[in-house]
């Protein structure tokens, strides 16, 4: 394939990966930012979103779009509700102590994964996309002294992949608006800045925590619902998103939403482009190396602010 079309294809693939990653990582970052909880089970909430999407989509008959829209509405809400319950029954009990929450969320990781294995089973199951038209992309070349348009072999995307990018962008915008323009966002930011002071001003910090944990995990589930018509729902699918989300959140700065989005774009796009031109292994090596450099030279992340002492 020629360089130009090759780069376009790589960027499109990277953009799809980056948009889902951004949603997932923003969820993780939100939870850390507000609650100071490192949620190791985040990837399993992602997986749960995909599995629930399959349950919802397959139990609703008719046009595939019906099942998909239902899944898009139901799965993140269910996962968010479950996460809020986990917060109230587990994380609150260990008093959000950093070490103990890590151990607790590792336990939750295994519980969710194994319960899925016991109920949903070990198979990968597809969700039919609501629409999926192949869109060939034209390219230009100089031939016989003038610009000519042609259709390179393999340079294409699908309408659904473009939808994933658009939907993720809209959701990220919504999260940003929620955090900066709404009362809920104000309450969350107040809790993030100083939870004791927030409590003194009458903010129900415990309820804010449950809500934040629910929203964070719900965002991961939403990312999974968007990707499941391209990939498939499988009980082990949470591992990669967890790892990549941590990479993104560390690079972007724990708790910084703009930093997380930019880091997700950086990691997602570079993963797409480097995998296409070189190998996927090199892409993973480089992103892990970047994490190492960030930790050594800028531990608060590219966009993070230093902890106030």
């Amino acid at each position: 394939m020629d360089f130009g079309p090759y780069l376009i294809l790589a960027s499109l693939e990277g953009a799809v990966a980056a948009s889902v990653l951004a949603l997932t990582a923003v969820g993780l970052s939100l939870v850390f930012g507000v609650m100071r909880v490192v949620n190791v089970a985040h990837g399993e909430f992602f997986m749960l979103g995909a599995v629930l999407a399959w349950f919802v989509a397959s139990s609703i008959g008719g046009h595939p779009a019906l099942g998909f829209v239902a899944a898009l509405l139901v799965a993140p809400v269910l996962v968010g509700g479950l996460a809020a319950a986990v917060d109230m029954t587990v994380l609150k009990r260990v008093a959000y102590d950093p070490e103990r929450t890590i151990v607790a969320t590792i336990g939750i990781l295994y519980i969710i994964q194994q319960v899925t294995l016991m109920t949903y089973g070990p198979d990968a199951r597809p969700v039919t996309p609501p629409f999926n038209t192949r869109l060939a992309i034209p390219w230009f070349e100089f031939a016989d002294g003038r610009v000519q348009m042609y259709w390179p072999w393999g340079l294409s995307t699908t309408s659904y992949k473009l939808f994933v990018i658009a939907a993720a962008a809209i959701m990220l915008l919504a999260v940003w608006l929620m955090m900066t323009r709404s009362k809920i966002g104000l309450v969350m930011r107040a809790t993030q800045l100083d939870s004791e002071m927030a409590q003194a001003f009458g903010i129900p910090v415990e309820r804010v925590y449950a809500m934040v944990f629910g929203i964070g995990c719900g965002l991961a589930a939403l990312g999974a619902v968007l990707i499941v018509p391209i990939q498939q729902a499988h009980y082990l699918m949470g591992t990669d998103p967890l790892l990549l989300s941590f990479i993104v959140v560390i690079i972007g700065g724990l708790g910084s939403l703009p930093g997380t989005v930019i880091a997700a774009l950086l990691i997602g796009m570079s993963d797409g482009i480097i995998s296409v031109f070189y190998t996927p292994t090199l892409a993973k090596i480089l992103s892990t190396l970047l994490v190492a450099f960030v930790l050594v030279f800028r531990p608060q992340g590219l966009f993070g602010t230093r902890e106030r002492e």
Binding site: P5, L9, A10, A17, G154, I230, G272, S275, V276, P280
Partner: peptide, 8 residues
């Protein structure tokens, strides 16, 4: 889990 990137 994603393959298009290999096909070019």
């Amino acid at each position: 889990s994603s393959f298009t990137k290999y096909f070019p």
